[in-house]
Amino acid sequence: MATIGTNWITEAFIDAARGVDAFCLHAVYSRDEERARDFAAKTGAGTYYSDLEALFGDDELDAVYIASPTRYHAEQAASAMEHGKHVICEKPLCSNEQEARHLIETAQKHDVVFMEAVKNLYTPGFQTLQEWLPKVGTVRKAVFHFSQYSSRYDAYLNGEVLNAFKPSLSNGATMDIGVYCLHPLQRLFGEPEEVKASGHVLESGVDGQTNVLLSYDGMDAVAAYSKITASNSPSEIQGEKGTLYIDTIHEMEHLTFVPVKGEPETVDINQQHPDMYYEAAAFIGACDTNDTTSLHWHDSQMVMRQTDRIREDLGVVFEADQLRT
């Protein structure tokens, strides 16, 4: 496998993936040759590249992990798949639904594995959540929280706009951390009938915090997230038989079910590996079998549709949107 991107999340993925027997770090890529060479030395990669065509033309390479800025996901992923490479792309998948649809079509055309790396969907915590969900009975409401003050916001307040707050790179709260709320909602409850959003848009043009109301047949859901405030509020799923509390939606460690009648139950998640290990294992397993049925392409496309609607309500426009045809 090769990696695109030299930031902390790429390092975290490599460290986690090394726990999977079939993983081998063949190469790393950066636009800057010196940075690529240094990152290869740091991670123990077999080689390094500063040219994408050369990377994708490497016959010894079978798969690529993409963790570049979101703006470049679609172009890089499509090119890799056109060269016959399997691709795991860091969340969010891309900038908008049109790009997502094109990527899925490209994966189907070239018969390769293509997966969005949404780490909280592959963990034992999420599996336990799915197993415990029937306890609440008929679901009437879900509220998923994720507010994490960005270390880059201090620089923003001092007049320096770093990548995390640049619309030119398809960033912002919805794209960075909102998807950790939207993806579990999509996986558990499917596509909502209606999506409405409100929030605070920064002067740079991206959302700093957003509240989303998603309406379903017989239930409603709220996704509340922020990069400019912090909160320890748990998430919850309310049903007619009780409420299921989730300590943190992006890194589940404890679940508590409080029935309408009876005593609460709590489970501590028995997780043996880092969160990203599980997405890496799912991807590598799919590559070994060339099985794409478990990669949830439809969910990825639907979440990008929801982010499009959210940004429309907020008035957030990306440069990538201008390329739609």
Rank of each mutant, 00 (worst) to 15 (best):
M1Q: 00
I4Q: 02
I4R: 05
I4Y: 05
T6K: 13
W8M: 11
E11Q: 15
A12T: 10
H26S: 03
S30F: 05
A36Q: 05
A36I: 11
A41G: 14
Y49G: 00
D51Y: 09
D62S: 05
A67Q: 11
P69T: 10
Q76I: 14
A77E: 09
S79W: 00
S79A: 13
E82H: 02
E82T: 00
H83Y: 14
K85R: 12
V87Q: 01
E90D: 10
K91W: 05
P92G: 00
P92N: 03
C94W: 07
N96K: 01
L103D: 04
A107I: 09
Q108Y: 08
D111K: 15
V113Q: 08
F114M: 06
A117G: 01
A117Y: 05
K119M: 06
Y122S: 09
T128Y: 04
E131T: 12
K135D: 13
K135I: 00
V139N: 01
V139R: 06
R140Q: 08
R140K: 14
F144T: 04
F144E: 07
F144M: 07
H145A: 04
S150A: 03
R152L: 13
G159K: 02
E160A: 05
L162D: 13
F165C: 06
L169D: 11
N171Y: 07
M175Q: 15
V179Q: 07
Y180R: 09
C181F: 07
H183A: 09
P184D: 07
E191S: 12
V195R: 11
K196S: 03
S198T: 14
L202G: 04
L202C: 10
L202T: 14
L202R: 11
E203S: 12
E203L: 09
D207C: 02
G208H: 11
N211S: 11
V212A: 03
S215L: 10
S215I: 14
D217Y: 02
G218N: 05
M219R: 09
S226L: 08
I228N: 11
I228V: 15
T229V: 14
N232D: 15
P234V: 10
S235L: 06
I237T: 06
G239L: 06
G242L: 09
Y245D: 03
T248G: 08
I249N: 12
H250A: 14
E251Q: 15
E251Y: 13
T256G: 01
V258S: 06
G262T: 14
D268G: 09
N270C: 01
Q272H: 04
Q272S: 10
M276E: 12
E279G: 08
A280H: 03
G285E: 11
H296N: 15
H296F: 14
W297G: 06
D299L: 03
V303K: 01
Q306A: 00
Q306W: 14
T307P: 07
D308F: 11
I310Q: 02
L314E: 13
V316H: 08
V317H: 12
D321S: 08
D321N: 13
L323E: 05
R324F: 04
